[in-house]
């Protein structure tokens, strides 16, 4: 996610060529174990799958509803993360706001909080008896919990820190030197942000958005606590998979594989763009 330093031919060659540098062997053993920990269960999923009925399983009404809902809410919450998380990362990385470490810790809270707890806090706040939910109900007749909107809010809640962390890191790595140069060339702060800062950290922004989308796509705990599990409205793929795992394991495995495929497609698509896109 960090870019090659400007005007340094050395960083280019290190990207392409092998240096003949060998890793010490103790690195390999835990690396292989770690890889196995991730890859073997996925392989097990492939072996366990009921392949003759695979297509039927993933094209059932319930499955298609869940897939559609997952993609819709995932993309929407990613857009919301970009909309609010980008300025948030800029403030955290560039401003001299007093108490910045405290603000940052609060923003990162969803990373360490169990998602279910996050969902419950949202429920307490926006539920019909909650302080904000009460007002929404009284003034606008709006009930947030157990709606698609609630799914999006829950996903945004848990996914935003991923975007903020990734982007803030990219901003700090890039430093404010490019903005300073842009200013001496007559660029207003808004122009510098639009034409220099954002393009320079674009790889970090993209990978942050991918992480946020992946997190939103896999969201379970906060969603189930805050939005419930209603088919077509709040039952996203992870919720359906959990439901099916109780009585229809074949369907759960097939849908799990579907989720894996979607995730891999997203990662591969954005990784290739990341490496070649901005160039």
């Amino acid at each position: 996610m960090t870019r090659a330093a400007p005007s340094s031919p050395r960083t280019r060659s290190s990207r392409t060529g092998s240096t003949g540098h060998t890793l010490p062997w103790p690195v390999w053993v835990p690396a292989v174990v770690g890889f196995g920990l991730i890859a073997v269960p996925v392989a097990g999923l492939v072996l366990r799958a009921d392949w003759p009925n695979f297509l039927t399983l993933i094209t059932s009404d319930a499955a298609l509803d869940a897939l559609r809902l997952s993609l819709q809410t995932g993309l929407t919450s990613t857009a919301l993360c970009l909309l609010f998380g980008t300025p948030l990362a800029l403030v955290l990385a560039r401003s001299d706001l007093p108490g910045l470490p405290v603000w940052r810790s609060i923003v990162l809270l969803p990373l360490v909080l169990p998602p279910v707890v996050g969902g419950l806090t949202l429920l307490f706040l926006l539920g019909r008896t909650g302080p904000v939910g009460q007002l929404l109900d009284a003034w606008f007749g709006v009930t947030v919990p157990f709606s698609t909107v609630a799914v999006v809010i829950a996903q945004t809640f848990v996914a935003m820190p991923f975007l903020v962390v990734s982007l803030e890191g990219a901003l700090r790595t890039a430093g404010d030197r490019y903005e300073a140069v842009a200013a001496t060339l007559g660029a207003s702060p808004m122009t510098a942000l639009r034409r220099v800062t954002i393009p320079v950290v674009l790889p970090g922004l993209v990978s942050g958005a991918v992480l946020a989308f992946a997190r939103a796509l896999g969201e379970f705990g906060a969603t189930v606590a805050f939005a419930g599990s209603l088919q077509g409205t709040t039952r996203t793929l992870p919720l359906l998979i959990y439901l099916d795992s109780q009585d229809d394991l074949d369907s759960a495995v097939a849908l799990s594989l579907l989720l894996v495929v979607v995730a891999v497609v997203v990662i591969v698509a954005t990784r290739t763009r990341d490496a070649s896109g901005v160039r």
């Binding site: 030197r177 300073a180 140069v181 200013a183 001496t184 060339l185 122009t191 393009p199």
Partner: peptide, 18 residues
């Protein structure tokens, strides 16, 4: 800075990489 009409050239060229 952007209204001073003062240019700055430092050790690093700091060309915008994109």
């Amino acid at each position: 800075v952007h209204r001073r009409r003062v240019g700055l050239l430092s050790q690093q060229a700091l060309l915008f990489p994109h």
